[in-house]
Amino acid sequence: MTPDELKDAVAGKLGDKMSLLDTGRMVPMFEISAANLLTVAESLRDDAALKFDYFCNLGAVDKTERFEAVYSVASIVHKHRLDFKVILDHDHPEIDSVQEIWPAANWYEREMWELFGINIRNHHNLTRFLLPDDWDQGNPMRRDWDAPDFEKLPEL
């Protein structure tokens, strides 16, 4: 499917739960609410025409007033790709785990939990991941994170 067809197909099937973000990019980007994540993810994976069975990437972005969790999924059969993002509250970020739908998401969610402090609901294994076992300096990927040995480069 071309990106335009894909946009229409997704909007037609899940239009009430997803809203298209006009980013003018090659791959369509949708926004969904945190409450709808699991149902949307399941229909994205199971719908025969979409069949997003392959989990590419999950990255969180700290926008200082909110968090964005950006998911990239692809379809092996139909060879198309789709991105969608979930907006999270900055004070109490919490999101459902999608590892039941895409097992590959397991470690991405662990990483997001550890580096951003976003709580993952129903995740089976939220333990220390990339950081040292005795790490006690917070969530380093947050924009406001500061630590004694963290130096920002001077502005050019």
Binding site: T23, G24, R25, V27, C56, N57, V61, V70, S72
Partner: peptide, 20 residues
């Protein structure tokens, strides 16, 4: 302003970078 996720095939599989 914008964001994109680019991916290429390297010898170990999908190598991707997401830039915002």
């Amino acid at each position: 302003e914008g964001e994109t996720y680019a991916r290429v095939e390297n010898s170990r599989g999908e190598l991707g970078v997401y830039i915002q």
